[in-house]
Amino acid sequence: MSLYFNYLFILFKSQMQYRTSFWLLTIGQFLVPLSLFAGLYFLFERFGQIKGWDFYEVALCFAVIHMAFAISECFARGFDAFSSLVHNGDFDRVLVRPRSTIVQVLGSKFEFTRFGRLLQSVLVLVWALNNLAIEWSVIKAITLCLMIISGVSIFAGLFILAATLCFWTIQGLEVVNIFTDGGREMAQYPLNIYQKWVTRFFTFVIPFGTVNYLPLMYILGKSEGNDLLYMLTPVAGIVFLLPCLLVWHIGVRHYRSTGS
C-alpha cells in the first residue's frame, strides 16, 4: 500500500511538469458531467418526478455513481489505459519487478485531472443531501460510504476485465465501454424506471443497482422488508471485483509480449 502512494507521488510530480494542461483538463472534467446534470435538472423541471422519484433523490443517485466513476477513473486509470502498456511493451517491465502486477498497473497511471469530475459530483451530493429530509443515523452514513466503495469496485472491476482482454486482442475494446460508460449513464437514474431485463442485468450481472438504487431505497425510507438486506447490498459490488481479479491472473499467463 505504501508503495502505491510512492507511485502516486512520482506520478503527481510528473503531472506537475505540465501545469497548464493539468488545469485545462481538470476544468474540462468539471464541466462535462455538469452538462449531464443540467440535462437531468431540465428533465425534472418539465416532468416533476419519475416513477415516484423526485429531483433531489435522483440527484443523489447521480452524484453517487459519478463520484464512484470519477474516483475509479482517477485511481484505476492504469487498467483503463492498459492497452497502451501492452502495445508498447512496457508490461514486460512490470513483469520483471518483484511486486504484484495489480499494484504496478494501478501505479502506472493516475488521472489527477478527474478531480474536476469528483468535485462536481461532490457538489451535487451535498446539494441533494441538503434538500432531502433524511433521518440520518450512523448506519445510513456507513451505507452511503459503502455505496461509493461499491461503485468504485465495480468500475475498477470492469476496467480490469477490459484490460484483461488486451492479453488476447489489442483492439476492439470499445465493447467494454458499453458497460462502463453505459452502466454509468443508466445508473444515473433509479433502476426501476427501466425495462425488467435491464434492471435484472444491472442487478445480478453487473451489480450497478446495488451501488445506488437498492441502498438508496433504504436511506430514503422507500424500502420494504429487511432494512439490513438493503443496507448490505453494496457489498455485492465489492464481491464483483473478485472474479475480475481472478480473470486478470489467468490473462497475465497469456501475455505474449511484443517483438523488439
Binding site: 510512492n6 507511485y7 512520482i10 511486486r99
Partner: peptide, 23 residues
C-alpha cells in the same frame, strides 16, 4: 532493454531510483 526505459520519464533520475528502492 536497450530500447525501452525503466525510468520515469518526467521526474529526476534520483526519484526513479528511490521508487525502485521501494519496489
Amino acid at each position: 532493454f536497450g530500447q525501452r526505459s525503466q525510468l520515469w520519464w518526467d521526474v529526476p533520475v534520483i526519484d526513479s531510483f528511490e521508487l525502485l528502492r521501494d519496489i
